[in-house]
Design a protein around this nucleic acid. Sequence first.
DNA 1: ATTATATTTCTATATGTATAGACATATGGA
DNA 2: TCCATATGTCTATACATATAGAAATATAAT
Lengths: 124, 124
Amino acid sequence: MDIQKALIVFDALSQETRLLVFRMLIEYGTQGAPAGALSDRLDIPHNSLSFHLKHMSNAGLVLSRREGRSIIYSANFELFTGLIRYMIEDCCRVEFASIREDRKRGSSVIELMNCCQPKKEKRP
Amino acid sequence: MDIQKALIVFDALSQETRLLVFRMLIEYGTQGAPAGALSDRLDIPHNSLSFHLKHMSNAGLVLSRREGRSIIYSANFELFTGLIRYMIEDCCRVEFASIREDRKRGSSVIELMNCCQPKKEKRP
DNA sequence: ATTATATTTCTATATGTATAGACATATGGA
DNA sequence: TCCATATGTCTATACATATAGAAATATAAT
């Protein structure tokens, strides 16, 4: 993940309909759900939803496949976790967040500090 | 962090100038940097930068304080880590990411699964 | 083949956003 | 007070985006 890709993904996540769709797709897991189910559940006209799904698809945030008459969309978890890694590695300081690989478990372990309000020092 | 707040922060991060500014502010740590330093280093007219700093400030992504003639901006790390927590808690499945509190260390520990091939990049 | 279903594409329109010049405000120093 | 410095606000403009009706495409069922 580089900054250009991160911008595209942040943009895809910065619109209410799209974030709602993404969260809903997460419920459906890797199996995904047809566009119509999302359209019905979110009460969004099918053509408007199609516009946003295309936007998310271009950003790589969702994957799609045809099954009969339906097109099944699913969340791209790998891209999403890639964005989280980018945020830790490129947009955080070690004092606030660190990341290390746990190869045995095949995972990245992130430690996020519970920083209180950054202390403002008063000048005499 | 709720969905409305997350949308505002994603939006603030979805524009190149703003993401560059945020990353630069992270370099400066909690101490921050005056608007002019950012304007100079990024070669952006001061009024354009002011527009984006105001945008980021409204989103809560940066904090500011006056020091003499300068206005010092700093990254709001707490908000940023709050967004990461939101992404894990509300936008991920347990199969792909989990979060737990380590109260002794005062931190949240996130485990991100490497869905496919583990990709590791070192920060400079 | 014809029709119904599922979704996308086309189109127009309304709204939001980024940019930068010109001007305004706030502070500190001479 | 006057001036330079640092930053913000106003304004116009160009560009991007969201929305939804209408039409088009692809598939399945009859």
